[in-house]
Design a protein around this nucleic acid. Sequence first.
DNA 1: GTATGTGAATGAATTCACAGCG
DNA 2: CGCTGTGAATTCATTCACATAC
Lengths: 256, 256
Amino acid sequence: MATGRTHRPATRSRGIPEATVARLPLYLRALTGLSERSVPTVSSEELAAAAGVNSAKLRKDFSYLGSYGTRGVGYDVEYLVYQISRELGLTQDWPVVIVGIGNLGAALANYGGFASRGFRVAALIDADPAMAGKPVAGMPVQHTDELEKIIKDNGVSIGVIATPAGAAQQVCERLVAAGVTSILNFAPTVLSVPDGVDVRKVDLSIELQILAFHEQRKAGEESAAAEAAPLPPAARAAGQADRKGPDGDVPAVMPA
Amino acid sequence: MATGRTHRPATRSRGIPEATVARLPLYLRALTGLSERSVPTVSSEELAAAAGVNSAKLRKDFSYLGSYGTRGVGYDVEYLVYQISRELGLTQDWPVVIVGIGNLGAALANYGGFASRGFRVAALIDADPAMAGKPVAGMPVQHTDELEKIIKDNGVSIGVIATPAGAAQQVCERLVAAGVTSILNFAPTVLSVPDGVDVRKVDLSIELQILAFHEQRKAGEESAAAEAAPLPPAARAAGQADRKGPDGDVPAVMPA
DNA sequence: GTATGTGAATGAATTCACAGCG
DNA sequence: CGCTGTGAATTCATTCACATAC
């Protein structure tokens, strides 16, 4: 996804596919659950079900990490938890800063899952001077002026941006200049960053739009003939009509 | 991702690839920006830059929607905005309920981007009786008991789950039973749903873990001599199953 | 007998590169 | 010409199916 390109293929990289990396946290969570219930071993089948993927995929994923299972038996839960944690870099501590302490930023600061696994909120930063000093999630908000100092003093390499869209790029640049190399962006903007910096984005409205797309298709599905046509003027029903020229039916909304 | 099984492989479906659908909202946002600045047309190159993708991909994406551009010129901004909106189903109104009005749920309720584009928060629902009636984002929180009635009265087909993990599956089942067919899940759990229901998940801690993975790799990249990884604290039992390594040689970050 | 690990087969997404249209 | 639209080539991901090891 938004993973920065340009990682040398030259060096014998571990070569774990990105899609696999994205699933490791899922496996880890499922395993943690089993671990808490003191389950000693799992089969790929069981673990896959718990993680919501299919077992072939899971086995293939694990095969990139090494041979951590036992044929005829399954995987040792504790051992796998450790191996995946290590692979993900969760055996070390990652100080994180959250920039933009509005509704969302505050919610993130309060989010428990944050601290749980290797991540520690090192600071909350906001541009509003009125916020400075106010405690959020038991931690005083600091002013943006301190950003560079905070990053350096705490050795922060991961930053979370929860500012309004307009401020995001600028905040991003300051974070990067101060040494942050991974950014989780909640602002609805495309961030541009130099090579070597990873950006991942979380965007509510994008997710909703994707759902709406599928939802719409469901609605038009059964009633292919039935006129369940949406409201818009250009009600070319979501059927099988293959579009070609826009010339035919021009929506009212359009400037011809 | 968590998109439910394919519907109708038989019929000549519109066949827009999932990856393309996931990018349409991005294009739409970029286009909206241009539209506000009254830019009349864009080339694939410019638009791609604004959306953070490459131009070949963008053109291919658009080709699934139809031929909406003009060779030698580019795309008409307003026209494209309309076409993509329609494709995504945003020309209609989608009532949405948010279940679980804690920190996150409240933040989501207050999130502006929600209402902006076709989505309307129809109700906020929480299981805590103490919350009932309290206004959040200018709207009274309703009790879970009302869930079914709310869904039906408002014709809600999209639900947002922002409850604690433990409650998510149960809430999900009630939503689905009441008629919801698309779910956006913020709870850190795998939801199981019947066929025909789409689930998308947004998970902060997964995103952070993916960043940590890359971050770790960056750190170990130049200096192969990091620190010696300790043996698993609880790696009893499976002692013999020592990893044989993906490629048989020594992994970069590992103790030699 | 049972469940892993993995080549081989299939399928999806991206990128290339250029024909064709305005 | 310039820029779209798209087959063809390529890369990436998933699934199959079975030899392999316990």
